[in-house]
Design a protein around this nucleic acid. Structure first.
Lengths: 217, 217
DNA sequence: CGGAGAGTTGAGAAACCTCAAAGCAGGTGG
DNA sequence: CCACCTGCTTTGAGGTTTCTCAACTCTCCG
């Protein structure tokens, strides 16, 4: 939802984004190879996106929460290069991209907003590249948890206690680690009093020390 | 240089991209923290971009050649989050972003082109994330060399023989490896008859076998 | 000719992975 | 309502890969 729009501009944008749909857990929002027609804005709940590679490898590329946008990678190829799956019951708005382009030609603030969203995705990817290329397992997991914490917090939930919607395998796929390493690292954090981990229920006990982990190598 | 523009549209775009400048090796095109005003289009030669992190870590995020665009990450923050340095004498066009936005509001094909460029960057980043998270040293270096080969080839140079403009340290920084590992992996490839490596001069002796390395784990 | 930066190579250490076994939790059908 | 699956998670032991530290070589340039 772009800021800085006048009432009438906002109205036109709302009209474009009116087709909201509910998805149940595990349901696909789009699949690899689908024709690219729309971006998808998460309005409630959360989804994950996954890239399937030729050689059978799969990788999770994002965990998206309300207010975030999915599908930007497909603009370049006209079909989706990854697939998006609901991690819990959720609400997703479909934004027909050609209409979005049309409207953003008329509303400079919307245009700028769209560009910022795409650029933010590039910055986010770069920070993941840095995580993958130079952090150790403990740093990666700490960074991951702090990122979730911050995003939960921004949405009015507790930054200290939350439930993970993904498996150890999925966390590992996202962080470039094997599931056993993820599990062991959770255990280490718990032993050191940084977290309380009850399988998927996470409570951050010592936020400062967890922060000090990231970028300490 | 966008395709599908009419002669007059092309003319207007040319006007916008007319401020070409030469850079000598090692010269900065922009620095971290610089106000974001323009994108930069490489017209000849090549540049590298580098992110400097708070904790002193640095990472190379791209090696760009003619026809490629730099600076997309800065749109979201209004200042550059990385720095760009010439790797050899080169020619770079400055594209004032606000003018680019203005023009792309009037020329849908230009707008679409800009969106595709940004999206392509996202796709590129995702493939690097996959490289970093799931490939071993040999696969990473093979993928890197094949990527360079393909891009040289697309520009009319030999796909089999080329000169690296970067140090082992920089390759390592880009691929998430230490320079010694990069060096050793080059040596392995040479021992196995895949490459001839004379420090920075690379000749690919067995393209097929090199390809079969990528995605073989 | 000397120095500095870049590259190569070796040996040992550290981090992570693989394989394997066992424990848990949630859902289903009897 | 319980027993039993099934899929997820934890933990251990041993193997691999990559890193670290160190010495040495090479090349280029002044």
């Amino acid at each position: 939802m772009p800021a800085n729009l006048s009432a009438s501009e906002m109205e036109r944008f709302e009209a474009l984004s009116s087709s909201k749909r509910s998805y149940s857990t595990g349901e696909y929002v789009y699949r690899t190879g689908d024709r690219f027609l729309s971006l998808y804005a998460i309005r409630g709940g959360s989804i994950k996106t996954r890239v399937l590679h030729e050689d059978g490898r799969e990788q999770l590329t994002s965990f998206l929460m309300s207010g975030e946008i999915s599908g930007l990678d497909a603009i370049s190829t006209d079909f989706h290069t990854c697939e998006a799956v609901a991690m819990e019951p959720c609400e997703v708005c479909e934004l027909p991209f050609s209409k979005l382009e049309e409207l953003s030609r008329e509303i400079p603030n919307l245009q700028r907003h769209l560009h910022k969203i795409m650029s933010r995705e590039i910055v986010r990817d770069q920070s993941i590249m840095m995580l993958l290329s130079s952090m150790r397992a403990e740093e990666r997991l700490a960074a991951f948890l702090l990122n979730l914490s911050q995003r939960f917090s921004a949405r009015g939930y507790s930054p200290n206690a939350f439930r993970l919607l993904m498996t150890r395998h999925e966390i590992g796929s996202y962080l470039g680690l094997k599931l056993e390493t993820v599990s062991r690292t959770f255990s280490h954090f718990q032993e050191h009093g940084l977290l309380s981990v009850k399988v998927r229920e996470i409570e951050i006990m010592d936020m400062l020390r967890l922060r000090s982990f990231v970028g300490s190598t």
